[in-house]
Simulated assay, not measured.
Amino acid sequence: MALRQKGYQVGRQRLRAALRRRALHALQPKAYTPRTTDATHGLRCAPNRLLDQPKPTQANRFWVSDLTYLPLANGDWAYLCANQDMASK
């Protein structure tokens, strides 16, 4: 913006190439990532009760799930929860 105000015709690629020739780089702000998990909470984790169980042979006996956060294009966040039947996958 400062170069354009001084009358220079500079595009993004030309500026990037000029900076690269001088071994410089532009400072980019870090992308915002929310702190969604506190791994240092000091509480007990729930035990995995399926480790001691035999492999399921019938559908709808054991289900597992996972939850994650997804960034949306408008800057908001959404939850994604995936469920899976351990017998039929």
Rank of each mutant, 00 (worst) to 15 (best):
P47W: 04
V64L: 00
N83D: 07
L27S: 15
R49A: 08
A87I: 01
Q5E: 15
S88Y: 06
R12W: 08
L67S: 06
K55A: 07
P34D: 05
V10M: 12
G7V: 06
L15V: 01
L19F: 12
T40I: 00
C81S: 01
A18K: 12
Q84F: 02
D76S: 15
R4W: 10
L70R: 12
D85Q: 00
W63Q: 00
R22I: 04
A46W: 08
N83S: 04
C81V: 04
K89D: 12
N83E: 09
Q53C: 04
A46S: 11
K6D: 05
R61P: 03
A46H: 10
L3W: 15
Q53Y: 03
D38F: 07
R44N: 01
R4Y: 00
A78F: 05
C45F: 08
L43F: 13
S88Q: 01
L80V: 10
C81K: 10
N74G: 04
N83I: 08
G7F: 09
A18T: 13
P54A: 06
P47R: 10
Q28A: 09
R20A: 15
G11P: 02
Q5K: 14
A2L: 13
N48D: 11
W63D: 03
A39L: 00
R20H: 10
T36S: 09
L24Q: 07
P56S: 00
K30I: 14
F62Y: 15
T37N: 01
C81E: 06
A78N: 06
T68W: 06
A46P: 09
Q53D: 07
R21V: 07
N83A: 08
L19P: 07
G11H: 00
A23I: 07
M86G: 05
W63A: 03
N74V: 05
G42R: 05
T37Q: 10
L19G: 07
R44P: 13
P34W: 03
R12P: 07
R16M: 12
R44W: 04
K30D: 13
L27Y: 15
K30Y: 14
K89H: 09
K55E: 04
P71R: 11
P54D: 09
A2W: 10
D76V: 05
F62S: 03
N83F: 08
N60G: 01
M86S: 03
L27C: 15
T68P: 02
D76K: 14
L50I: 02
G11V: 08
G42V: 05
P56D: 02
Y69R: 09
A26N: 09
